[in-house]
């Protein structure tokens, strides 16, 4: 099992880590980009959920809504990953030794495993043609994913305070 204390100490000693930590503007800049990418994910998931619940945008089909929102989520994820990596490289102990960071990563894996299969399902066929049980399952998964993303954002901010 990886010893996170050793890993973070080693990371902190690398030259890239020193550079990021020394240049005071890099971390806030990267955090801001991270926040903007979160904004894209949160609002896309939020809008998709509202559409699935039939509360908004019923002029377009679920299929069309999914086709519109999923690409944004898809592109935001690598941005989140890259900015996240830079933040870890710059302040390894802050993340790697923090319980809230770990909760965040666990929930992230969970939400990705839950939601990515949905994309195929929603884009392949009209939502209304699915059996009722399946539609309800999709709606439930969508809601759970929204709650997970909210928790991820919460834990992300709480890293600074834990």
């Amino acid at each position: 099992m990886l010893n996170m204390v050793d890993v973070s100490q080693w990371l902190a000693s690398t030259s890239i880590s020193v550079v990021i930590a020394d240049q005071g503007w890099i971390i806030p800049m990267v955090q801001s980009v991270h926040i903007l990418a979160i904004a894209i994910v949160m609002s896309s998931i939020g809008m998709l959920n509202l559409r699935l619940a039939g509360l908004i945008g019923c002029e377009q089909s679920v299929r069309q809504a999914a086709a519109q929102f999923f690409p944004w989520i898809w592109w935001a994820l690598p941005v989140l990953l890259l900015t996240g990596i830079v933040m870890i490289l710059g302040e390894p102990e802050r993340e790697l030794l923090n319980s809230y960071f770990r909760y965040k990563m666990l929930m992230l894996v969970a939400v990705l495993l839950l939601t990515l299969p949905l994309r195929r399902l929603l884009e392949d066929q009209p939502f209304r043609d699915l059996p009722v049980a399946k539609r309800e399952t999709v709606r439930a998964i969508a809601l759970v994913s929204l709650l997970l993303w909210l928790s991820i954002v919460f834990c992300g901010r709480w890293i600074a305070y834990a």
């Binding site: 926040i35 903007l36 979160i38 904004a39 894209i40 994910v41 949160m42 609002s43 896309s44 939020g46 809008m47 909210l150 954002v153 919460f154 901010r157 709480w158 600074a160 305070y161």
Partner: peptide, 20 residues
Amino acid sequence: PAIEVVHVVAITLVVGSIAM
């Protein structure tokens, strides 16, 4: 911190929806 979290979540939704 709790108020700040609410603030951050709210901002991501404001900026995300305005960006659309």
